[in-house]
């Protein structure tokens, strides 16, 4: 398929992000924070998509890579003078090392990727429920260790005094980087091979594709993106271990499923739509006027609306709002075409 016809696949998600950013710039300063937050969530969900979307395998472990990235970027950017108070028990090496904003994000990506690789190396051999539970175990262990271990961070206290460098610009650029990387990956041979294993594992294996290796590649890349997004997140607001645990796992999975886990567009649309609803109801706690309609909702309504929405989407439209399709011009059955290409190249 020609490049021109495929261009909408990456341009539409990117434009959606830019439009969100512009909208964020247009609103009041007070509301801008919600938009920045939304963009960071988009980045997290795009990372989640890179593994789940392309492999078709469920992972509950993604947020542990976000957490590790957040820890990396956070610990490395808290001003050195604040460290003895913020991290009383921290390792000497971390207490004395400081890097700038961009470097902290890059290192967050590296640490996220390395951690994901180390975890994925044994775990990607598993499939089915065993894989689901094993990734859940990784999430539990990461949360447990980050939440209590003072050697590597704030432990129970959570972060404070991380420079708040994630404004609307950083969030937008970060988000676009994630989208670009995710798209580039799924256009490479690796991405196409992994998608072939998703459609028909037996045929893909018969064509010489190593399912384990391809899943590991995606898992590692997803881990790096997650780490990067975690870095963006910690530069946005003070985080503690439990901010990066079950609730975030649920919300990001909800975004991916609602949007349609099969496509990059689905990931972005889902993240934007769910965040929009979630933010609206969170903001509505302090009463919101909707076209002159005075709305007052109780705290916690957002989560309930989200839960109901997700159950409804799963029942009525299990492949998500976008149906798992990319937006591109006339197409044929791509999975089969990919399989053929993969066969030809291996």
């Amino acid at each position: 398929m020609s490049v021109a016809r495929r261009l909408p696949e990456v341009l539409v998600p990117a434009l959606l992000v830019v439009a969100t950013a512009l909208l964020g710039l247009a609103v009041s300063n007070y509301l801008e924070g919600y938009f920045v937050n939304t963009l960071v969530k988009v980045a997290i969900v795009v990372g989640l998509y890179v593994f789940i979307g392309n492999s078709g395998v469920l992972s509950f472990g993604q947020i542990s890579f976000v957490a590790v990235g957040a820890w990396t970027a956070g610990v490395l950017t808290v001003p050195r003078a604040d460290k003895p108070i913020a991290f009383p028990g921290i390792a000497h090496f971390l207490a004395t090392t400081n890097v700038g904003n961009s470097a902290s994000l890059a290192l967050a990506a590296v640490v996220g990727g390395v951690f994901a690789f180390a975890v994925g190396l044994p775990l990607m051999r598993l499939s089915g429920l065993a894989a689901g539970i094993a990734t859940f175990a990784v999430l539990e262990i990461t949360n447990n260790v980050l939440g209590y271990e003072g050697l590597i961070g704030p432990a129970l206290n959570g972060f404070s005094s991380v420079p708040p460098t994630t404004g609307i610009w950083q969030a937008t650029i970060g988000c676009l980087i994630c989208i670009a990387v995710a798209y580039a990956y799924q256009r490479t041979r690796f991405g196409r091979m992994l998608r072939a294993t998703r459609e028909d594992p037996a045929a893909a294996a018969a064509a010489g594709i190593s399912i384990h290796r391809q899943r590991l590649v995606a898992f590692t890349l997803a881990g790096a993106l997650a780490g990067f997004a975690g870095g963006l997140y910690v530069h946005l607001q003070p985080l503690a271990a439990n901010d990066l645990f079950l609730d975030l796992t649920f919300i990001t999975l909800a975004m991916l499923v609602v949007g349609g886990s099969g496509s990059l567009l689905g990931a972005v649309v889902g993240a934007l739509a769910v965040n929009g609803i979630y933010t609206f109801f969170t903001a509505a706690v302090n009463t919101v006027d909707v076209f002159g309609w005075h709305l007052h909702v109780r705290a916690g309504t957002a989560e309930i609306v989200l839960g109901v929405l997700m159950v409804l989407v799963l029942i009525l439209r299990p492949s998500g709002l976008t149906g798992g399709r990319e937006l591109s011009l006339p197409r044929r059955r791509r999975a089969l075409a990919d399989l053929e290409k993969a066969r030809a190249t291996t």
Binding site: D247, F250, L253, G300, E303, I304, L306, G307, L314, I315
Partner: peptide, 17 residues
Amino acid sequence: LVATFAVAFLLQNIALL
């Protein structure tokens, strides 16, 4: 599985509310 995840989250938040 994801649906039961959603139900869990939903019920938990109803209880919280």
